[in-house]
Design a protein around this nucleic acid. Structure first.
Lengths: 262, 262
DNA sequence: ACAAAAGTGTTCGCGATACACCCATGT
DNA sequence: ACATGGGTGTATCGCGAACACTTTTGT
């Protein structure tokens, strides 16, 4: 939201366009240079960071909402995006006054105060989605509400607003559980990638190490990746071969599940 | 809801006690006599069956709501109850007129008509929960809204109201995936059970067969169950031994996951 | 020459699977 | 005696895990 008018409209008429009592929070996992990070934003006037999120428009399906919110924050579309849980238990989700104050701080910046019964201050459950992106592709633009953003290592997430730490934990658990069952990587790697790259990706997400030889054997046996003739010439030393995903087997593994690593 | 007054209060004032735009639908799996069934209800004036469900009270946590709704329908508490997905994509969840009519039919019976903008007629996303029960313990009492109930084999579910067939499918998929990772049975079997009983339970849920000897070996190796001295004297022929779950190992397997069967 | 990165094959052990006969009981 | 249901052990195979040396290239 870039103009004061937009914010005012959202605050005063948002309940006509969006469903109240429900929000979507996105845990956006970005991978780069052997590190798994998540995208955090900070609202004006807040000390703590929080997850990017938004509301469900009345004329959108839930899935469309999640993709729109993600695209608004990252400028990326067609991403791997997965619903993983609804959060409605914690104290902040029971609408304690703390939540009301937190929201008020955000909008005070543009000179808007939320009344006691304002739709943004009512009890709101949040549907958690997680996405996988290559974080070099993400363009985040601060606006009237969002003061700053940062990429934070998943092993080193600070205390977040609301119950967002809980959401991050659950997202990470789900991502890891999923990775053991299904292939992930299509959205996190270039079309052609090297074995060390995908190997490091898996180690970063799962937070553990895999034997290089066994790892390659596994992916090749499952037919998930194909070795190409080309090699990549990067830096010194021996150049690694390039690989690509086999779309057919990749899709099949997504649908049927396949044990990828133990 | 047993009195007309209760129904009227719910229809007219429900939005003050419950969160609008959100509901909970429960897929209640019941097991008995080698069959996995689900509990369906039928509202007055409806042809199709549907899943039991309810709304989230403003002063309850989401988890409390789910347990309350389940208890209202089955008279059972402390059950294994698991959130598995939010449904917000299908045509009926986009609030087509069909949904409005369907609801109206329900309340017409008690002489109530819902206006166009009634809270019960607005677009409502549904949070799916599934539960596991021994269906002999379930006491379902029809009331002013619920005309009838039945237990239906999961392999033979008729066309249901709204998007409830989709919800059942997703619940079953989740239950099966979960069963491969975690022990299930505590809520579905008596405290002491025989090996053939738990064996048949797994076969019914997963829809496939297991070798008796390997199955027993697996559960014993994992320490999930303990063999007792006693035997059960049932019917003719040799009496089977009784087993019980080892609470400590069972709990550990729930938390950490354990591969149970392949 | 040496250091750093990447390529490659074999062995071992456990766990999953497959499989068949005996025992007890009731008719 | 026979039919039914339940109990039990062993052999095989495949997959996952562990493991080390060679090749290339830049300095």
């Amino acid at each position: 939201m870039n103009t004061r008018q937009e914010v005012l409209d959202f605050v005063h008429n948002g309940h006509q366009h969006y469903l109240p009592h429900l929000s979507i929070d996105c845990v956006i996992f970005g991978y780069h240079a052997h590190q798994l990070k998540i995208l955090l934003i900070r609202h004006h006037g807040h000390e703590k960071w929080s997850l990017p999120g938004g509301y469900i428009a009345r004329n959108e399906t839930l899935t469309q909402s999640a993709h729109r919110i993600l695209a608004e924050k990252t400028q990326l579309s067609n991403l791997f995006l997965q619903q993983f849980y609804v959060f409605g238990d914690s104290a902040t989700r029971m609408n304690r006054i703390e939540t009301h104050d937190t929201h008020n701080t955000t909008y005070a910046k543009v000179g808007v105060a939320l009344g006691e019964n304002h739709w943004l201050s009512e009890r709101t459950l949040s549907i958690g989605y997680y996405a996988l992106v290559d974080y070099l592709n993400v363009v985040v633009t601060p606006d009237l509400l969002v003061d700053a953003y940062c990429w934070q290592e998943v092993t080193d997430v600070p205390a977040l607003d609301f119950d967002h730490n809980e959401i991050v934990q659950k997202a990470l658990m789900t991502l890891r559980a999923q990775l053991y069952q299904q292939p992930i990587g299509y959205n996190l790697l270039a079309e052609k990638f090297t074995l060390p790259e995908i190997h490091a990706l898996y180690e970063a997400i799962l937070g553990r190490q895999f034997d290089r030889r066994n790892f390659r054997k596994k992916l090749l046996t499952l037919g998930l990746i194909r070795q190409l003739e080309e090699r990549r010439k990067i830096g010194p030393h021996r150049s690694p071969y390039l690989y690509e995903f086999d779309p057919e087997n990749y899709q099949k593994a997504l649908e049927e599940g396949a044990v990828l690593a133990q």
